[in-house]
């Protein structure tokens, strides 16, 4: 192994990504973050502001920003857009009454110039609830098929049981890695 190869390998190890997690309040953003990080989820309070977690996954360094979804906080979302590689949009699949709200907020985000390069992962969360809509129904309700501006994918998951969280994040990493980690 030549010196150059060693240097390149080291550089590859420093690969860093910035993920922004948004969604309406009560969607389960913080619970997803904590569950993914292996923390206790039973003591989570409604997010008054934001949480940041830095974690290593598959050799990537992930900076995950979880910003509160209350109505009064949504106007601050844009403060977090800059240099976002991946946008994780979390949906409460059992909250039928606010799906329209959810669609509008998402489509407004996708018009944001500063998020133009970001990959979109939609988590249809709370699949453990008996009244939850399937990910197909959510896909339709949010009109995801009309999105041509971003790479996107929808995954049904449950933050409480941890089901499919890894699948979703792995997809997101693959897609981002394919885009941004070209040579210098």
């Amino acid at each position: 192994m030549g010196l150059l190869t060693i240097l390149k390998k080291m550089k590859q190890k420093e690969r860093e990504m910035r993920l922004l997690m948004l969604g309406l309040d009560n969607a389960g953003k913080t619970t997803i973050l904590k569950k993914f990080n292996g923390e206790d989820v039973s003591t989570i309070s409604p997010t008054l502001g934001f949480n940041i977690k830095t974690l290593e996954h598959r050799g990537f360094k992930l900076n995950i920003w979880d910003v509160g979804g209350q109505k009064s906080l949504r106007s601050y979302w844009r403060n977090y857009f800059e240099s976002t590689d991946g946008l994780v949009w979390v949906v409460d699949s059992a909250d039928r009454l606010r799906l329209e709200d959810c669609r509008q907020e998402l489509s407004a985000l996708l018009l944001e110039e500063r998020l133009a390069g970001a990959t979109l992962l939609v988590f249809a969360n709370k699949q453990d609830l008996p009244g939850a809509l399937s990910k197909e129904a959510i896909r339709e309700a949010l009109a995801l098929d009309e999105i041509k501006s971003h790479h996107w994918c929808i995954i049904g998951c449950s933050a409480v049981t941890g089901e499919n969280l890894l699948t979703g994040v792995d997809w997101l990493l693959d897609d981002i890695a394919a885009r941004i980690f070209t040579a210098d």
Partner: peptide
């Protein structure tokens, strides 16, 4: 094109 980009990225180490 996306796949091609990925192929290129994967090959960065030996090119």
């Amino acid at each position: 094109i996306g796949q091609l980009q990925k192929f290129l990225n994967d090959s960065v180490l030996f090119l």
